[in-house]
Amino acid sequence: MAYNVLIVDDSQTMRKVIRKTVSISGFEIGDCWEAGNGREALDILHSCWVDLILADLNMPVMNGLEMLRELKKGELHRHIPVILITTEGSEKRLEEAYALGIKGYIQKPFYPETIRDVLTRIMEETRD
């Protein structure tokens, strides 16, 4: 089964690398959109059907936590699983992100196998 994915990261290069890494990991991608910050991601969600969001935390304009707060406010998009791909590792910040509804967390730097395992597990849980 292929999933529509939205990648949110302020680095265009990192977005391309994440997209490529997800593809080579064996996780099937349908449509894939990219956003440079949380605000752009919310705009994309208004017009596209997204199954999974992969987001960074540290971004200009609207960071990952602010985006999660906005997602949680609306009925339409709050069910979309969000996985953080970030350099952040502080317990408090991750607790805050989990409280805002993230389903998983991958720390940069990462191996393709880690991405595949986390994404597969979370999409299976979501389907159940």
Partner: peptide, 29 residues
């Protein structure tokens, strides 16, 4: 340039969170 930005982000984020996971580290862009 984008890659050097990302290198800084990854090194700084990992370094300080590995030194102290309890502290919230705020990083600039």
């Amino acid at each position: 340039v984008d890659v050097v930005n990302e290198l800084c982000n990854m090194i700084c984020g990992n370094l300080f969170s590995q030194l102290d996971k309890k502290t919230v580290w705020n990083l600039t862009i």
